[in-house]
C-alpha cells in the first residue's frame, strides 16, 4: 500500500470530522441582499401596475422561485459539489411530490368546480 499519499485517502479513521470549507460572511450577506431585493420586487409587483394584470401571479411565482433558489444556494449551501449530490436528489424528489400534490389538487378541484351542477 505504500505510495498512497493522496490527501483524501489519508489515515483518518472513518467518520472523523474534517474542516469543511466554511461559508463566508460574504455568502450570507450576498444572500440577504438578494433576498431583500426579491422581496421588495414581489411586493412591488403585487401592489403596482408594473406588470400586465393577468401576468402578476406568474411574475410572483417566478420571483418566489428565484427567492427559493437564493435561499438554497446562499443559506442552505446547496451547490454542485459532490457533497451536495445526495441532497439535490432528495430535493428533486421533494419538488416532484410538491408539484404533484399542489398541481394535482388545483387541477382536480378546478375540474370538479367546472362540472358542478348550477346551484
Amino acid at each position: 500500500m505504500e505510495g498512497v499519499d493522496h490527501p483524501v485517502f489519508d489515515d483518518r479513521s472513518p467518520g472523523v470530522e474534517e474542516q469543511e470549507p466554511a461559508a463566508s460572511v460574504l455568502t450570507y450577506t450576498t444572500g440577504l441582499l438578494f433576498a431583500l431585493v426579491l422581496t421588495l420586487a414581489s411586493f412591488a409587483v403585487s401592489q403596482t401596475n408594473l406588470l400586465w394584470g393577468p401576468g402578476i401571479p406568474v411574475g410572483l411565482i417566478v420571483l418566489a422561485l428565484a427567492q427559493i433558489g437564493v435561499h438554497l444556494v446562499f443559506f442552505l449551501h446547496i451547490g454542485f459539489g459532490p457533497e451536495s449530490t445526495n441532497n439535490i436528489v432528495a430535493l428533486a424528489f421533494g419538488v416532484w411530490i410538491v408539484l404533484l400534490v399542489i398541481g394535482g389538487s388545483i387541477l382536480i378541484i378546478a375540474n370538479l368546480n367546472a362540472n358542478m351542477m348550477p346551484m
Binding site: 505504500e2 505510495g3 493522496h6 483524501v8 485517502f9 474534517e18 459532490p82 457533497e83
Partner: peptide
Amino acid sequence: TIGATIEAVPTELARGRGGGGPAPTRT
C-alpha cells in the same frame, strides 16, 4: 494494487459517490 485502483479514480469524482471512504459524520 488496491492503492493504484483507488488512485485511478479522480478525487473529485470519487467523493460523494462512495469513493474515498465513508462521508464525514457531519455530511
